[in-house]
Design a protein around this nucleic acid. Structure first.
Lengths: 151, 151
DNA sequence: TTCGATTTGATTGTGCGCAATTAAATTTCA
DNA sequence: TGAAATTTAATTGCGCACAATCAAATCGAA
């Protein structure tokens, strides 16, 4: 089996945007976030901030480390993001008394209440997408599998 | 048909990260870019810069507008990115003499030559992924379809 | 117990990504 | 033709995203 080279037709084909997996992934991810934007703007949230709230609504308090593991984001991204959310009084940041290295993120009253306004967001996006449920579920499953290959 | 509310089980389920399509898309996109990173670093390229070069290698000269349409990026992203690539002498920027509003992006000699080193990148990523070709192709097709729904 | 290794977050610096605005060139059409 | 509308980039400002580094707390083995 010969390896493709720059001179081989295979290598040239692989260098075309149209044959790649990563580009539609990259573009669709940005377009999806853009589809969220008008809905999230009403809540004064960005998409990554919304993701943090999803986890807090679902699980209650989380350490920065846990949020990072679940969202695949590091402290260089999360620390300033969480500080902005703290300033807006949606969440609180405090050191774990049993292990002062950890910072525990919790919801404020406003943060809890935001959930009621956010509950309309996923359904609105589903409607925007207008994708058959079977296709949606299959794509979600495949993306989760891809993620296990990459993470 | 009742609309889901925050109190309904459906709405609560939709607010879980695990049931969403956008999050695995968002996470997989970032992890994919991270998988490219060590390979692109050898070429002194970021992933979006690599995308620009893919188009220039494939099509030759492109205006900023064309690059923006093909990559779904706007001038606020492309202009500084292209200026950095110009500084590194991979491409040239010049006004279209027939329409001074347009800026034409072309490859330098170094930019052309970079193609030979980049041709190994897609195959290396495929190997890293180690995904059956059928699954790869199906996922790519579905993501392209998703992109048409979103773009 | 103590000191080296590990864990955890914070900080710094660079590069996107995008909304909003501006400015210049071109096109349109009255 | 000439003013208004449109097109195209550039600029500005803000928020991620992440590599690299640092500092503090904790853990663990000798």
């Amino acid at each position: 089996m010969n390896k493709p080279t720059v001179h081989s037709p295979e290598a040239a084909a692989l260098l075309k945007l149209d044959n790649q997996l990563c580009f539609p992934l990259y573009a669709a991810s940005r377009m999806f976030t853009k589809a969220y934007q008008p809905l999230l703007q009403e809540l004064d949230l960005t998409y990554p901030q919304y993701l943090v709230l999803l986890l807090l609504w679902e699980h209650g308090e989380r350490t920065v480390k846990q949020l990072g593991e679940e969202l695949l984001l590091d402290s260089g991204t999360l620390t300033p993001l969480l500080k902005r959310m703290e300033q807006r009084q949606w969440l609180t940041r405090r050191r774990d008394l049993r292990d002062e290295r950890s910072v525990i993120i919790g919801l404020t009253e406003s943060g809890q209440q935001l959930r009621e306004r956010a509950c309309a967001v996923p359904a609105a996006l589903l409607e925007k997408l207008d994708m058959p449920e079977a296709e949606f579920n299959q794509l979600r499953t495949q993306l989760k599998h891809l993620l296990t290959l990459l993470a």
